[in-house]
Amino acid sequence: MTAAREMPIASNGDVVLVRQYVRGVAVEMGLSLVDQTKVVTAASELARNALVYAGGGAVRVETVENGRRRGVRLTFSDEGPGIPDVDRAMTDGWSSGTGLGLGLSGSRRLVDEFDLESAPGKGTVVTVTKWGR
């Protein structure tokens, strides 16, 4: 199993590196091509969110196991302004910045487990998990 890895998200180039690393781990965990594509796309959205809304952050990429199932878990954290109304932020079309308002709600649909913790002034932590079939 690949050891967990913490990656910085401080530039556009870092977003590309996160995508590439997550792809590699998803392949290693035996995710199908469609599931790889979904989790890499979610990683790209969430990494860009951290960059655009919080000025940067970090992601922890780790492998998970549950019986015979294997998967990849990503924990994005930032120390940005936080999200005042999480329910609203999870709504399609809602956006506070330059995005399309699909970053959070769209990412949630692409993964199996999605958890978001945020409060104004406290930053944001988003944890997503994608399991192999």
Partner: peptide
């Protein structure tokens, strides 16, 4: 796979 993902992303 990209088409499937785009549709789910919305």
């Amino acid at each position: 796979a990209v088409a499937i993902t785009l549709v789910e992303l919305g």
